[in-house]
Design a protein around this nucleic acid. Structure first.
Length: 804
RNA sequence: GCGGGUGUGGCGGAAUUGGCAGACGCGCUAGACUUAGGAUCUAGUGUCUUUUGACGUGGGGGUUCGACUCCCUCCACCCGCACCA
């Protein structure tokens, strides 16, 4: 007989909801534990089986920690701004809010059907004005600190649609919707100065308990490099440009210079006879997409400008070229080229027949660039030095002679923060007719999105908000001067940058959150989510957190102490689940057919949490079968508590029980749910072999499995005669002394191969073990006619006899 | 190309500081119960071999009494970045 998951799961979900079982007492005296999920974007497609994987993992921790006496904060909410709702609105003329709310309802229903122990009174929604009031407030703080500024940045402009498109809406240079041409057009954009925090974002990674791979990705993304910025004069013009290099030691080997095709200096220095060529090249490059400029472009291209730069250290003339292998967006958009010691410059020099001058010994510059260390030659004051010394000396010389400075450059760029969209947080800024701009006063926040059924492209590249005159046009009540509201909205990242703070104090009308509460509850103890957010979300959230730390709004330097990335659940064919491949598993159907507990158990048992593993219907059936097996052990055919459970000790189960408590506790703690669950299975297998099960052990087992399969556990707990929820029952403890038996089996090896086993007292000495092993009958056969050279004894484990 | 990671039965995966490789589950085989079984229970299940035994953790080499585990080298796959000066 199998248990009826449908009625049981429904029953306990109502019980938890009615009793507010999982309400967090934010002022509790208990020790806190904050376990957080990456909150979802509530898409129209509904929940995916990938969602419950991370959610189950955090739920297990939350439930176990509650039973271990912690006050647990385990919240859920919605990252609900975003492109799909805007597109839906453009298509149907409906307000995206309705669409979003409907999706949220569906997500909430699905999540609740899985039995997660969220405190639903703390639900946050990034599109709620009471929430985005504080997103806007944080923006104003960034603005006040000079960390938000306006810059001209090229965007994907689609003239036919009259709108700006996100990168993912552009396919092969055409708009995804309609296939219209898309061009790059510079527009005024808000940008956040994340680069100012680059060093701290880098350094503080050290103290975080995050996967090394994610830290490494963030380090690479920030891309700090040390070197020098060198000033070059253009011969005979009085113009200068600066070039960043990590190898100032190779300055004597710089034989030409390259400017990015977008470099502003080009027009001023280009020689008349080269003007046409240069212009043509610039136009060609501008027409190329980013992809063409990087991925597909293996062959180096470039054009000589006709101008010469002076190498400051030896006064030699270096031809100035322009080439698209130099990017305007990195460093200064200009380089000194040292073909002998840089692969890119080498390739370029070979192609255009530019001189290659060796200044570091150790390679063969006839064949390839040498980037390694070595003794400097042909380098005047640097001769004889190795790389590191030469770098220092070169910088000293540059600084002393006013030709350059020590400099650190980052790959990280400032964060483009504007979106030309309706469905996002309005940026609370007013542009006045006199050309000045001012923030919306704090007391006027939230600056709400105007309700409208007319979400249409503005046609100018501004967001659809530009169409709504009553909203956009403002008059200063004091002075009567007129102005326009900022029509750009914030990107989806904004709301997710700080939601973990709002959960701590979700209804506070006065503050983002009460500092006292933040002090108790930060940082997040465990944060689990997909690796797709390894860089952007996690870096942006860390940036905002640090800014908030600097203004005293939060008490910690970092938001997320421990981070874990769950893997992906693949389709049964081992491919990523997708509608087009038809391999998507819908959690609703599984909850219906197998139950939420089975789904939770299966997803945790599939393999390590971080691994990407294919879905298996047979594996799912196996999980259900195990739960049936548990049920039958506890409940008899008539539906009563089984006779096998007795109020009586059973020595035979003692060891396995204590072992199970230990292993399950440790493995769950370490997020190794698959191995924890396997131990629960071992216990059930042993219990089936036993004549009867002591009630203590039965209850302990139900507690141990309860974080994974809470509905089943609550039901068994009540059938064991309890009237309270199992959720706050004390977590089982184990007795170390019960783990070791008086007699242990040890292995006897001859030449490292297992030849016999024997039972010995657990505290047998080395000498005793050696004697016993040598006397063993089987061993005697093996060492017959051989000389025993050495005997290695590991007490409690093995004896290895070396004989030949 | 650079950086990070992973390679263990038919499959998903276990294995503490170097100490019985393959826990647990799936699948499969045989049997029991049954009108029936895709339910349940019992036994078996790395490969080769008649037994004894030999071999076996991507390939090759090394350190060690002993290596999935440590070192060298090669291969394959996955993820991230990708002309970052």
């Amino acid at each position: 007989m199998s248990y009826d998951h449908k009625s049981i799961e429904k029953k306990w979900q109502s019980f938890w909801e009615d009793n507010k079982t999982f309400k967090t007492d934010i002022n509790s005296d208990k020790e806190k534990f904050y376990v957080l999920d990456m909150f979802p974007y509530p898409s129209g497609a509904g929940l995916h089986v990938g969602h419950p994987e991370g959610y189950t993992a955090t739920d297990i921790l939350a439930r176990m920690k509650r039973m271990q006496g912690y006050e647990v904060l385990h919240p859920m909410g919605w990252d609900a701004f975003g492109l799909p709702a805007e597109q839906y609105a453009l298509d149907t003329g409906n307000n995206p809010k309705e669409f979003t709310d409907k999706n949220i309802q569906n997500f909430r229903r699905q999540i609740k059907s899985l039995g997660f122990s969220y405190d639903w009174d703390r639900e946050v929604n990034t599109t709620d004005p009471d929430y985005y009031k504080w997103t806007q407030w944080i923006f104003l703080k960034l603005y006040e600190k000079g960390l938000a500024y306006i810059d001209e940045v090229p965007v994907n402009w689609c003239p036919a649609l009259g709108t700006v498109l996100a990168n993912e809406e552009v396919i092969d240079g055409k708009s995804e919707r309609g296939g219209h041409p898309v061009i790059r057009k510079p527009m005024k954009q808000w940008v956040l100065k994340i680069t100012e925090y680059a060093d701290r974002l880098l350094e503080d990674l050290e103290e975080l308990d995050w996967p090394e791979s994610i830290k490494e990705m963030q380090r690479n993304w920030i891309g700090r490099s040390e070197g020098a910025e060198i000033t070059f004069e253009i011969d005979g013009t009085g113009h200068f440009f600066k070039a960043f290099t990590t190898r100032p030691d190779t300055l004597y080997g710089a034989t030409y210079a390259v400017l990015s095709p977008e470099h502003p200096l080009i027009d001023k220095i280009v020689a008349d006879e080269q003007k046409e060529l240069v212009k043509k090249y610039q136009e060609d490059v501008a027409a190329k997409s980013d992809l063409e400029r990087t991925d597909l472009n293996k062959e180096k291209t470039g054009v000589f400008t006709g101008a010469y730069a002076i190498n400051p250290i030896n006064g030699e003339k270096m031809p100035v070229w322009i080439a698209d292998y130099v990017l305007m967006s990195y460093g200064t958009g200009a380089i000194m080229a040292v073909p002998a010691h840089d692969e890119r410059d080498y390739e370029f020099a070979k192609k255009f027949d530019l001189p290659i001058k060796e200044v570091v010994e150790g390679g063969n510059v006839e064949k390839e660039a040498y980037t390694g260390d070595g003794k400097h030659i042909n380098s005047g004051i640097l001769d004889g030095l190795n790389k590191e010394e030469a770098i220092d000396k070169a910088i000293e010389w540059l600084e002393a002679n006013g030709k350059g400075v020590r400099k650190i450059t980052y790959r990280l760029r400032d964060w483009l923060f504007s979106r030309q969209r309706y469905w996002g947080e309005p940026i609370p800024i007013i542009h006045w007719e006199d050309g000045t701009m001012e923030p919306v006063p704090e007391e006027e926040l939230p600056l709400t999105l105007p309700e409208t059924n007319e979400i249409k492209p503005s046609g100018t590249g501004e967001s659809p908000l530009a169409n709504i005159k009553e909203w956009v046009e403002v008059t200063d009540p004091k002075t009567g001067r007129k102005g326009r509201r900022e029509t750009n909205t914030m990107p989806q990242w904004a709301g997710s940058c700080w939601y973990y703070l709002r959960y701590i104090d979700p209804h506070n009308p006065e503050q983002l959150a009460d500092p006292e509460k933040l002090k108790k509850w930060l940082p997040v103890d465990v944060y689990i989510g997909g690796a797709e957010h390894a860089v952007l979300h996690l870096l942006y959230a860390r940036f905002w957190h640090k800014v908030l730390y600097d203004i005293g709004a939060v008490p910690t330097k970092e938001p997320f102490q421990k981070l874990f990335n769950q893997g992906m659940i693949l389709g049964e064919n081992n491919e990523k689940m997708s509608k087009s491949k038809g391999n998507v598993v819908n959690p609703d159907e599984i909850v219906e057919s197998h139950g939420a507990d089975t789904l939770r158990l299966y997803e945790m048992f599939m393999g390590p949490l971080e691994a990407s593993i294919a879905w298996s219907t047979e594996g799912l059936d196996g999980a259900k079968r195990f739960l049936d097996r548990v049920w039958r052990l506890f409940v008899n055919e008539k539906g009563n508590l089984s006779e096998r459970i007795k109020d009586q000790e059973n020595k035979n189960l003692e060891k396995v029980y204590h072992e199970t408590v230990k292993k399950v506790t440790e493995h769950f703690e370490g997020l190794r749910f698959n191995t924890g669950i396997s131990q629960l299975m071992v216990f059930i297998n042993e219990s089936y072999k036993a004549e009867y099960i002591p009630k203590d052990f039965a209850e302990g087992f139900v507690k141990l499995i309860s974080p994974v399969t809470p509905h089943l556990a609550e039901e068994l707990w009540s059938r064991l005669g309890h009237t309270e929820s199992i959720s706050y029952e004390p977590w089982p403890t184990y007795d170390e002394s019960k783990l070791v038996e008086d007699e242990v089996e040890i292995v006897i090896q001859v030449m490292g191969k297992v030849r016999a086993k024997m039972m010995v007292p657990k505290d047998a000495s080395k000498e005793e073990l050696e004697t016993m092993a040598l006397e063993n009958e089987k061993i005697q056969e093996w060492i017959e006619n051989k000389t025993v050279r050495k005997v290695i004894v590991v007490p409690g484990k093995l004896v290895n006899i070396v004989a030949n």
